[in-house]
Design a protein around this nucleic acid. Structure first.
Lengths: 207, 207
DNA sequence: TCAAGGACGTAGACAGTGTCTACGGCTTCC
DNA sequence: GGAAGCCGTAGACACTGTCTACGTCCTTGA
């Protein structure tokens, strides 16, 4: 029941709902409190500042994204297929929950830990680490390599590539760019670009 | 002289200065007016809303970036070298003027034209088009192709890659990711990742 | 030459924000 | 049963972006 949820959780819930419906720019502290049914001073008991609350909302986003990635990965057979699935999930998440995606990568939130204002706990930026290290491992397996160190560079470039696709596509900039180029139809799906990026970094798909 | 500059220009000047010194998050309308030495109501004569002013500041950023890219391109001999130079300029700009870079890609600004609030003129998003089309042309020349249509897909993927590198590197996330991977030293320059990305999308460098 | 008009910037009001502080009600334990 | 501490309320404060009315120039035209 909702009554069982802590006010702390309910505040984050309300924040997520607000981000999704109104966009990441209008996530006011007072508005969140209003939606959670408490006074504007209540959040301060759990989040010392507005930014700390936003940080907690963003952290929720990383949890969602991680869960989606794990679910998609369980249906794949090869490392390459898992990389494709992971990339698609990443880009789809950026498009479907754009406000959350924006919040998750707001650099002024990345150094906060979502509880205290001074980053004592794990910082938000580190929430991407597990997913990145999974990419490193998958890239290494794709190449049949044992050590991960030589795959890290490729993985970093690929990681940046998928992040860029997610961001530019969710904003519509990639569609505009390709549509504005003579003789190119703007695609309604980023799948072709995702394929191109994976092929570029990993070599053409085997199957 | 500064006295020759329009108040409109001086407002954008003050805004740029403020973004660079205080970050993109604290670019208040009133603070800009204060730094320009006018009252808080003055900007409204030229920018109907705060967002329109921010949009004009972002547009200034695209002009700066375009100028840097053109200057760097004039010293190159091959298409591949120009692509390398362009990528380096892009990533360096994101790092050196991070606040401007953030503003330039704030999606809620991308649909404004910086003057009216309703986008009557050219939208901010289209400010990236010339640079993207240059990338398309360069990619086509790198492959010795005549038509641009087949190069557009590769160019789009490469474009997203360099954008992702710029963003993640300027925030420090890529450094953290590579540093957090066993056996990898975090580099102090993004050049290796840039090289890896260009090699991936265009094939290994000829020279 | 002088008056009318418009461009330009000022200043106050208004609703709303994030943060801070003092205050009540409630539980929980000694 | 009283005291202590957690939890949420409510008001104040400085500040923000937007709107509106008002002056002060400069230009323009007869």
């Amino acid at each position: 029941m909702d009554a069982e949820r802590t006010l702390r959780e309910r505040l984050v819930d309300a924040g997520v709902e607000l981000v999704l419906s109104e966009g990441s720019g209008s996530v006011g502290l007072r508005e969140i409190a209003r939606r959670a049914g408490v006074s504007h001073g209540a959040p301060r008991r759990y989040f010392p500042t507005h930014r700390a609350l936003l940080s907690a909302i963003a952290r929720r986003g990383f949890e969602e994204l991680g869960a989606r990635a794990a679910a998609a990965a369980s249906h794949t057979a090869s490392p390459r297929a898992e990389l494709t699935a992971l990339t698609r999930v990443y880009v789809a998440y950026a498009r479907e929950r754009r406000g959350m995606f924006e919040l998750m990568f707001r650099h002024d939130l990345l150094d906060s830990d979502g509880q205290s204002e001074a980053p004592a706990g794990p910082r938000l930026r580190e929430a991407t680490l597990p997913m990145f290290q999974r990419v490193v491992a998958l890239v290494a397996r794709c190449r049949g390599e044992v050590t991960q160190s030589s795959a890290a560079l490729t993985a970093a470039a690929l990681w940046a590539n998928l992040h860029g696709i997610a961001e530019l596509w969710s904003w519509g900039s990639l569609q505009l760019a390709m549509g504005g180029t003579a003789g190119v139809e703007p695609a309604d799906s980023p799948d072709r670009i995702i394929e191109a990026a994976l092929d570029a970094h990993l070599g053409p798909a085997a199957s």
